[in-house]
Design a protein around this nucleic acid. Structure first.
Lengths: 239, 239
DNA sequence: ACCTGAACACCGTTCAAGT
DNA sequence: ACCTGAACACCGTTCAAGT
């Protein structure tokens, strides 16, 4: 029963830690992108063989879960200044910038709902502000989810290559104007709107598109708050 | 110079077509999911070796681009009934259902902006309705993009495993209530809101979350339409 | 308890060679 | 023009074996 007979003086904790794995994964991600992020490379980054990782982590999925939370480690909540609208806007703008700042972050995070400790910290803060703003508990929870999904979904489009196969080789602007050309060349009779709106469709930057959608969403939340959150009923739209 | 000397009576076009590749890819996707979708399996599905595919397609990315459009082939625009709001709502609801109906569709489509012919058809239709509803050209284009990104982003969360590593083995409801338990167990002092809103956060179904976000967005579009689309200015929020 | 060697069953892609 | 064989350089994961 004397299981702990190892009387080494130095703690000499196992060379590998879950934390170390995640940090290594983070470096590999930054250096090689999500497609280059392999268990073998993470192991190599730690001077160890791939099989070793499986002692600390069930599989790659679990490592990606941990990595997802680590990506949120240095995300910051906005200052508590201005109304709820400014604060929520800043939340989304910062979250977007944060994801854009880490290579392929959206692709790692997307569709991964596991809330790690770092994300919980941010949720706690945002939920507090939503309740203070007057949102009901149910609405606050919904808004919190909606904003997260919104930003993640948006950045995912933004971070993926614009035109897939021809991502490298041409700048974003060039690809966009080329797409505009293509739309304008469509047959007028069957695609009148696409032809007419070619510029409007391909002109705006990702930043523009994000702001647009964000302001619409915030307007929608304004409406919700004005109505009082329990007056609303399904099936009674405005027409 | 007599290049076409093949005088076979039957057209006997090359056994492989891009169309055939895409159809095979679609079947593999449905059968094995996005993780099982490999060039080798697609080739096998066609009774051919993997190397052959590269005659018809630059690489896997290009095949995925084609597949993305094929996934939209049987998507249907909603009936032209009711106001713009009902129609846009139906658009989003149907798009979501359509993606949910095809295995891992969101994961294939997500972040792939290349608009193929099938998507163009839908865009043309939706842009027409947006203009009729009174949206400016610039706004119509933005709304079209925003709705697409919104639904895709949402379904991506929905289609991915709820809790990553433990996706299989427990139903969605079970995982959710377990998550609720976990939230309720957090330290009250540091996470008062998470504890208080544990039910509100984990209770609602994905359907509920989608509807909520969608109605908020539609409310925001209402506001835009009422204001007149060029009155709005940046930097003059409601406080 | 923690790490390795070696293997298994896969990948995407290229390219000379066949027809 | 279209397809194959064979190879290259990888994957994630398992598991007996080492220490």
């Amino acid at each position: 029963m004397a299981v702990e007979s190892k009387s080494d003086d130095a703690p000499s904790q196992p060379g590998l830690t879950r934390q170390a794995l995640v940090q290594a994964a983070l470096r590999v991600l930054e250096r090689e992108g999500v497609n280059g992020l392999s268990m073998r490379k993470v192991a190599a980054e730690l001077g160890v063989k791939a099989a070793s990782l499986y002692w600390h982590v069930r599989n790659k999925e679990e490592l990606l879960d941990l990595l997802t939370d680590e990506l949120m480690a240095d995300a910051e909540a906005p200052p508590r200044e201005g109304g709820w609208r400014e604060q929520l806007r800043e939340y989304c703008v910062r979250y977007r910038r944060h994801l854009l700042g880490k290579r392929d972050a959206a692709k790692v995070v997307a569709g991964r709902l596991v809330p790690g400790p770092h994300l919980l910290r941010l949720m706690e803060d945002q939920l507090g502000r939503l309740r203070e703003a007057g949102f009901s508990d149910a609405d606050a929870a919904m808004v919190n989810y909606a904003l997260g999904a919104f930003v993640q979904g948006f950045v995912l489009q933004e971070q993926g290559p614009l035109s897939a196969s021809e991502a490298m080789g041409a700048g974003r602007r060039e690809v966009a104007t080329a797409a505009g050309e293509q739309l304008r060349r469509l047959p007028q009779e069957t695609f009148p709107h696409l032809v007419a709106l070619a510029d409007a469709l391909t002109g705006p930057s990702m930043e523009d598109r994000f702001s647009f959608a964000l302001e619409r969403l915030l307007d929608g939340l304004s409406t919700l708050l004005e109505q009082g959150s329990d007056v609303r009923k399904e099936g009674t739209p405005d027409e």
